[in-house]
Computed example of a mutant assay.
Amino acid sequence: MSITDTTTLTAAGAAGWNAEALAEILANDEGRPVLFTNARILTADPLIGTLTGADLLFVGPLLVGVGPGIITAAGDDNAIVVDCTGLTVVPAVVDTAALAGGRARRSECVGTLTPGATTDFAVVPDALAADVASAVAVVLTAPEQVRALVAAGRPVLWAGADVPGRATAPEAGIPAAEDLTGSPRVGVWIDRNDFLHQELTPDGRYDETRGGRPHAYQGRYWIDGDRIDYLDDLGFWAYGEFRDNELHHAGYVMKLG
């Protein structure tokens, strides 16, 4: 059955779907667990596989349980319950290499619905979810058919519509440079072997000296939390990460000089 064939059916079924549960989830500031129950779950985990009539339990961004029978403790734990009868739950982050059999170890798989993973998943009608790929295609091409899309434990789509106050992606394009005067991360960063000197200036520019060769690379940079992104004047992108007063970049570990 195609998405077009089921548009009227699924749209009617989505109207008002678990509206009370959504309100509870959005107002959940107490860390209450959330349980999606009575679902078919395509975990994309090679050990767990596909589950039917199963439950998915999470607390905030952490997925803590998957499988049948979890609903029995819902009352004990004061869980918010979302009935998913006739629906399939799939990972919202898809590991294409793993699905194609390209991961040698289960622990290398990402984007699975495995306890301990990040709570990123989608809920779509069974008829539109023959497998993970077809279910994810619904999210991308027909979001009005999606019962729920949850990112790090917070709903993004619900009953085919945007959730009020949902997170939104940053605007596409290169942002304007910020004035970083006074930032503790502005200055000259030097690696342990004194080979790489990377100067970050307050106007959002960087200038690298490598092995005594000045201006080896120059360009713009942006800092977002502990991440730094570089756009070199030659056109390529790179990144680094600030960890415990160190700057890790391309295998180098630097400290402020």
Score class of each variant (00 low, 15 high):
residue 9 L to T: 15
residue 198 Q to D: 13
residue 123 V to H: 04
residue 221 Y to E: 00
residue 11 A to H: 09
residue 227 R to F: 06
residue 105 R to E: 13
residue 14 A to F: 02
residue 20 E to W: 05
residue 139 V to L: 04
residue 15 A to R: 05
residue 103 R to P: 02
residue 62 L to Y: 02
residue 73 A to P: 00
residue 36 F to A: 04
residue 116 G to P: 00
residue 230 Y to W: 15
residue 124 V to W: 02
residue 186 V to Y: 08
residue 11 A to I: 07
residue 209 T to Y: 01
residue 221 Y to W: 01
residue 250 A to F: 04
residue 253 V to S: 11
residue 40 R to F: 08
residue 186 V to E: 10
residue 104 A to K: 11
residue 95 D to P: 04
residue 120 D to A: 08
residue 69 G to P: 10
residue 79 A to W: 13
residue 102 G to Y: 06
residue 242 F to Y: 15
residue 95 D to M: 04
residue 145 Q to M: 10
residue 33 P to D: 00
residue 116 G to I: 04
residue 221 Y to H: 01
residue 8 T to G: 06
residue 248 H to K: 11
residue 52 T to D: 14
residue 164 P to T: 01
residue 130 A to N: 12
residue 81 V to H: 01
residue 18 N to Y: 03
residue 120 D to E: 11
residue 167 A to R: 12
residue 126 D to P: 02
residue 159 A to N: 07
residue 127 A to W: 05
residue 191 D to S: 09
residue 149 L to R: 10
residue 84 C to W: 00
residue 108 E to D: 15
residue 125 P to V: 03
residue 147 R to A: 13
residue 190 I to Q: 14
residue 119 T to F: 03
residue 194 D to R: 06
residue 54 A to I: 09
residue 101 G to I: 04
residue 178 E to G: 08
residue 8 T to N: 12
residue 192 R to F: 10
residue 107 S to D: 13
residue 27 A to T: 13
residue 158 W to S: 02
residue 151 A to R: 15
residue 166 R to Y: 03
residue 137 A to K: 12
residue 218 Q to D: 07
residue 136 V to W: 08
residue 11 A to D: 15
residue 239 Y to E: 13
residue 37 T to L: 04
residue 167 A to P: 03
residue 133 A to T: 13
residue 157 L to W: 08
residue 146 V to Y: 04
residue 233 D to V: 04
residue 176 A to Q: 14
residue 11 A to W: 06
residue 132 V to M: 06
residue 30 E to I: 07
residue 102 G to W: 09
residue 229 D to R: 12
residue 113 L to S: 03
residue 68 P to E: 14
residue 217 Y to S: 14
residue 42 L to M: 15
residue 24 E to H: 07
residue 68 P to S: 12
residue 210 R to K: 08
residue 187 G to F: 05
residue 199 E to K: 14
